[in-house]
Each structure stands twice: as C-alpha cells, then as structure tokens.
Amino acid sequence: MEKLQEIKQFVLAKTKGNALKFGDKLPHSTEQGKYTFMDNGFWVGGFWTGLNYLCYEMSKDSSYMEFARSSNHRFTKRLYEDRQTTDHDLGFLFSLSSVADYKLTNNQEARKVGIDAADELIGRFHEVGQYIQAWNVWTPGDPFSEENRGRIIIDCMYNLPLLFWASEETGDPKYKNVAIAQAETCAKSIIRPDYTTYHTYIFDSETGEPKYGKTFQGHADESCWSRGQAWALGGYTHAYRYTGNMAYLKIAKQCAQVFIDRLEEDLIPMWDFTFQGGKEGETRDTSAAAIAAASFLELAKHVPAAEQAYYHDLAKRIVFNLYEFYSTKNDPENEGLLKEATAHKPKNSGINVSLIYGDYYFAEAVARLLNETVVYW
C-alpha cells in the first residue's frame, strides 16, 4: 500500500502541474517530453478530463474538477457545432467528461450532453450490417477511406459503456440494443477464432455482408496489435458488466489470456505481438499495458474467487513495473506519466512518447488498486 500511495502522489502532482500549464487545452502525445494539443480533442480529449476527475476522486481536491470542466466548451462545440468530426470515439470523449461530471456531481447539464452524445453514437449504427460505423470517409475516392463506410474497429468495444449508461439513465433500451448488436457483430468478425483480434474489419456497407479484416495501426492484417487486444479484453469485460451475458465474459477472459501469454518478461508488451521477444527497431507500448492493467482489475470483479487474485496481482505487478521502469518519476520536466508508448508505428508517429490515454489508464489502475474510484465506465 505504501508503494501505491507513492505512485498516487506522483500522479496527483504531475497532473496538477500540467493542468496549471495546459489551461483548457486537451493534450494528445508528447514531443521531447512536452505534450502537444488537439483543439477539438481528436479521439483522446476525454482522457485528460478523465484523468483530472480521477485525481479529484483520489484527493477530493476540487481544483481537479475545475481543471476538467475548463475544457467543456471544446467538447460541446464538437458535439453540437462540428458534428462532421465526430466518430465512434464519442464514448471515449464523453464518458470521461460529461458522464463523469454527472456521476460525481449530479450536474444535469452534463447528463444532457452525455445523452446527446449517446444519441449521436447510435446515429452511426448500420441496421443492415448490425454495426456502428467507426470512421468517416476522410477522402472520398480513396480506397481505404471509402472502406470506412463499412468499417468497425476493435477500439469501439471500449466506447460502448456510453450507450449502456444512457439506457440505464433514461430507461430507453435503444442505446443498449445498439451496444449489444455491436458486441455481437465484433464477436463474429473482429475477434478471431483463437481470440486474437483484427484492428479493423470491413463490411459491405450496402448489404451488411462481412468481407475481411484489415489493420491500420498494427503490423499486418493478420497480426495482433497489442493495444487492440487490450481494448478487446476490457471492452468485453464492461459489456459483461452491463449485460450479464456469459459469452462476453468468456471472450474477455480468452482475449486476456492471449494478451498475458504474449507479454514480455517485464510484463510490458511490444507494440504488436508479432515482435514478442523483442526485435531491433521495434518498440514496446506502455499504453497497452496500462489499458490491460485497468481492464484486468475490472475483470477480477466478475470471476470466481480463485481467479480474482490472479488478475489483481497481475495488474498490480504491471502498475509497479510501469512506475519503476517506464514512468517519468525521475524526470520532472517530462509532462507525461509513462514513457515508451507507441501511437502509430506504421506511420512512424508517436514512437517512444507519452500518450494521454496511457497516462489515464495508468492512473485508473492505481485508483482501482486503492479502491478510490467508483464512477468510470
């Protein structure tokens, strides 16, 4: 517990120092130890507000809530004025901003924004194929971009809690029904028979017929991108939490085992499991480790007692290793919490950096280990 308290103080101090510098800006990834920002939050803006709400829960220091709320105008502008920029990551954006605010404070305006975001998300649902379209058509006529009309990506499984929450909050099953449809479609397509995952999967947007798996951020179409595998194990864990469907718990546990079996000796995965065991020029992804650690702690709540300690202990060891060997605890000028994250290796973008979502899930895992968070997902 003493080590966890040390890590907690590290998270609190670094986050407050950053918030005092960042103002209402939304960080994405670091360059030479300094965070860069996305005006509209990109797909990652909620992780910064979520990190501040976590710090509020762990400290009861109201300044963190003020820091989180200072960015609200960026989220509402995007939802109500710049809708062409929204995609399936509405869950990441609004579960950790508006919904978190409402759960913590009963802020009714935040509740409305969260439900409006859920309405926007189900508006992306393709009835014929029973899937939520992940991305927009970025460049009409470009073959890859055109495929977006029928593309799902594994990250969406971790966006579905927004929809489950909206049904619980409103009593309207339409949100939950879409979330379940997405989970079922993913289970039959993007989850392979051996419980590894494709990054994306393409459907015929007119007929709904499944076509093929394809990567974007992974090494190859048939490889297993480690962060995507973490999204799967956590996404299906939360789907089970909201539905009680044992099939989802089975998928979560099997995806977890794939992840565990491919970890490096220090429990931090390579960016793609193709490179398990390491390869010169290839990098780890601490953000995948952090997502998995937080997800293992949620999974531990839903398995028999004999298995709970296994997942809990594994998550704790990952958190401790991240802190000891991959954190910025000895680098006060570095604005990130975790180093050696990998954003988009195929495009050589964000390599060996801090990523705000890696920082967020690291903090979430710490808060979970301390039993000091109650509102997330």
Results as ranks from 00 to 15, higher is better:
residue 8 K to P: 03
residue 10 F to G: 07
residue 12 L to W: 05
residue 12 L to N: 06
residue 23 G to H: 11
residue 24 D to L: 09
residue 25 K to M: 14
residue 26 L to K: 04
residue 27 P to L: 15
residue 31 E to D: 04
residue 36 T to V: 05
residue 38 M to F: 13
residue 48 W to H: 12
residue 49 T to L: 15
residue 50 G to K: 06
residue 51 L to P: 03
residue 57 E to Y: 11
residue 58 M to K: 05
residue 58 M to D: 04
residue 61 D to P: 10
residue 75 F to K: 04
residue 75 F to S: 02
residue 77 K to P: 00
residue 77 K to T: 14
residue 78 R to M: 08
residue 83 R to M: 05
residue 85 T to D: 15
residue 88 H to N: 06
residue 89 D to K: 06
residue 92 F to D: 08
residue 95 S to T: 12
residue 98 S to P: 13
residue 101 D to E: 15
residue 105 T to W: 06
residue 106 N to V: 15
residue 106 N to Y: 02
residue 114 G to C: 06
residue 115 I to P: 02
residue 121 L to V: 05
residue 122 I to A: 03
residue 122 I to G: 04
residue 125 F to P: 02
residue 127 E to V: 13
residue 128 V to L: 09
residue 137 V to Y: 04
residue 142 D to F: 15
residue 146 E to G: 11
residue 147 E to M: 12
residue 149 R to A: 01
residue 151 R to V: 03
residue 151 R to P: 00
residue 156 C to F: 01
residue 159 N to T: 03
residue 160 L to R: 01
residue 167 S to T: 12
residue 168 E to K: 13
residue 183 A to S: 10
residue 185 T to P: 00
residue 187 A to N: 01
residue 192 R to P: 11
residue 195 Y to N: 15
residue 199 H to G: 07
residue 202 I to R: 11
residue 207 T to H: 15
residue 209 E to M: 09
residue 227 R to W: 12
residue 233 L to W: 01
residue 234 G to A: 09
residue 236 Y to N: 13
residue 237 T to G: 09
residue 246 M to P: 08
residue 247 A to K: 10
residue 255 C to Q: 08
residue 262 R to Y: 08
residue 264 E to I: 02
residue 267 L to V: 00
residue 268 I to A: 02
residue 275 F to D: 03
residue 277 G to Y: 08
residue 282 E to S: 06
residue 282 E to Y: 11
residue 283 T to I: 06
residue 293 A to D: 00
residue 294 A to K: 02
residue 295 S to I: 01
residue 296 F to R: 03
residue 298 E to V: 05
residue 304 P to I: 01
residue 311 Y to T: 01
residue 314 L to D: 03
residue 315 A to I: 00
residue 327 S to V: 08
residue 329 K to M: 09
residue 332 P to M: 06
residue 336 G to Q: 05
residue 338 L to C: 07
residue 339 K to E: 09
residue 341 A to C: 07
residue 346 P to Y: 15
residue 346 P to N: 05
residue 355 L to Y: 13
residue 356 I to T: 05
residue 360 Y to R: 07
residue 369 L to T: 02
residue 376 Y to R: 12
